[in-house]
Amino acid sequence: MAAVVEVRDLRMEYAMGSDTVHALRGVNLTVEPGEFVAVMGPSGSGKSTFMHIVGLLDTPTEGTYRFEGAEVSGLSADERADIRGRRLGFVFQAYNLLPRTTALENVELPMIYAGTSEAQRAAIALEKLDMVGIAQLANHHPNQMSGGQQQRVAIARALVNDPGLILADEPTGALDTKSSQDVMRIFSRLNEEDGMTIMLVTHEPDVAAYGRRIVTFRDGLITGDAINERRAA
C-alpha cells in the first residue's frame, strides 16, 4: 500500500518586501496509512506552510509530493480542489462552521461539492455526528453549541467523505483543557479503532502527546522525528 504522504526535498520561498523568506528548506517525510503524526515547532518554523502544502491548499516552490501514491505537486487548482474534497479532511482552530446553519447541514457541506445524493448526505452526516458523540445536536446552530461541541461538528465534517488523511491545524487552540482532552480522545479513537491517518499541528506538548509519532520543525527543516514511546505501545 502506497504511503499517504511522501514529500522529497520540499522547498518553499516567498518574497516579503525585498527579502526572500525560506519557509521550507528541504523537507523529507513519509507518512504511512494508519499513522497519527503530531507536528510540533515554534511559530515561524515552517510547520503551517508544510501543512498547507500537504493539504493541497498551496504548492511548493520546489520538491515532489506524492499523495496516496500519485504525484500532486503539478496539479491544477481544480484538480487539487477535487482531491481536497474527496480524500482530505480539515479541522481548523477556529472550527469554521457556517453560521445560522444546523450542525447536520454543516457536516453535509463537503458532500454537496463531492456530488453525493441528497438522501445519502443526511444519513452519512448523522452517522458521523454520532461517531463524535453529538448526534443529538444535529439541528442546533453553531451559536447554540460550546466550543468543544463545535469542534466535534468540524471533525464530523472532516470525516464525511472517508478521507485518506485528516489534517488538524491547532484543533485545540481555542478550547479549554477539558474540551481539548475530549477532542483529542476522539482523534485517538479515530486513529486506533478506525485506522484513520491523522496529521496534527500543535505547539502544545500535552496535545502532541496524543500522537504516536512526533515530528518537530525548526527554521524550515525537520529537526526531530520520533516514535512517541508512551503511545506506541
Partner: peptide, 12 residues
C-alpha cells in the same frame, strides 16, 4: 466561509 468551502472541495 469561502476559504472553508474551498478547503472542503469547492472549485473556484
Amino acid at each position: 466561509e469561502i476559504g472553508l468551502r474551498m478547503a472542503v472541495g469547492a472549485r473556484a
